[in-house]
Computed example of a mutant assay.
Amino acid sequence: MWKSIALAAALAVAGGAHAQTKKELVQKVLQLQQPSLEGMARSLAERPALLMLQQAGQLVQARVAPEKREALAKDLQAEAKKYAEEAVPAARERVVKLAPSTVGALLEEKFSEDELKQVIAWMESPVNRKFQQLMPEMEQSLAQKLGADLAPTLDPKIQRMEQAMRKRFEAAGVPVPAASAPAAKK
């Protein structure tokens, strides 16, 4: 009987140590992923301001006197910056709080302790760091090539869409700004 109690106690201690170790590994992964998670939060927080600036820019071009456009655009950008200065830190704070109960819970559920160790080893490896540093250059290179490659396909479609929208604006009696350059070439 003492042997079974001792064995049960040893298993309970070992199980607790295993779970604690796994939780620590998950915490390490979250710590290593924090810049990426904060980047996602920043993007999510900034998206409404970017969309509003885009829509406002169109309105400014279409409905504001040319001599007032630049000043208004600066004012609108200042408002968007003010919003971002408040929203981004709040989003970062929330992502750090939510990550353990969301991402951390999934990591703990879906990965074994050994797999978590491998993930951490990869994330901390010089090869991964080099790969992550090269990522913006790779994305830019691909985006440039993709834009040039898609231009012949997209330009006619963009022009047709722009003409159709121009006709709808004209039919509604709304002044239409000068035609813009096709988006694929930007």
Rank of each mutant, 00 (worst) to 15 (best):
K110G: 02
E79V: 14
Q77S: 11
E124T: 05
Q77I: 04
R129N: 13
A73K: 06
Q140K: 11
A56H: 02
E170Q: 14
K167W: 08
R69S: 03
S125V: 04
M135H: 00
A87R: 01
M138I: 11
E86P: 00
A80L: 00
R160M: 09
V60Y: 03
A78D: 09
G147M: 05
A151I: 02
A56V: 14
E113R: 08
E70K: 14
V119Q: 04
G104D: 13
A56L: 15
E139A: 14
K68Q: 12
K145V: 11
S101D: 15
A65H: 09
K117R: 15
G57K: 02
V103I: 15
A78M: 03
T102Q: 15
E108W: 02
L142Q: 07
K167Y: 10
I158W: 12
A164V: 04
S125Q: 07
F169P: 02
A105E: 15
P156C: 06
L59Q: 13
A78H: 04
L154R: 03
F169V: 01
L98G: 07
A84N: 08
R168W: 09
K117P: 03
P177V: 06
T102D: 12
Q132I: 05
N128H: 13
L146G: 11
E113H: 03
S112T: 12
V176L: 00
E85G: 11
K110C: 06
E108G: 07
A84S: 11
Q133D: 13
L146E: 11
Y83E: 01
E79I: 10
L146C: 09
S112A: 02
S101T: 14
W122K: 15
A71H: 01
F169W: 14
L116D: 00
F111M: 14
A151W: 03
K117D: 05
Q58R: 13
A105D: 15
A172M: 11
P156L: 06
A71I: 03
A62I: 01
M165Y: 13
S141E: 10
G57T: 07
S125K: 02
A143P: 00
Y83F: 11
I158N: 08
T153C: 00
A62F: 05
E170D: 08
W122H: 10
A91C: 06
F131I: 08
E113T: 15
L107C: 05
A172H: 04
I158Y: 13
R69A: 03
E79C: 04
D149F: 09
T102M: 12
L142F: 12
D114C: 09
V95Q: 01
Q118P: 01
R63E: 10
K68N: 11
E86F: 00
K74D: 12
P66Q: 08
A143M: 14
A56R: 00
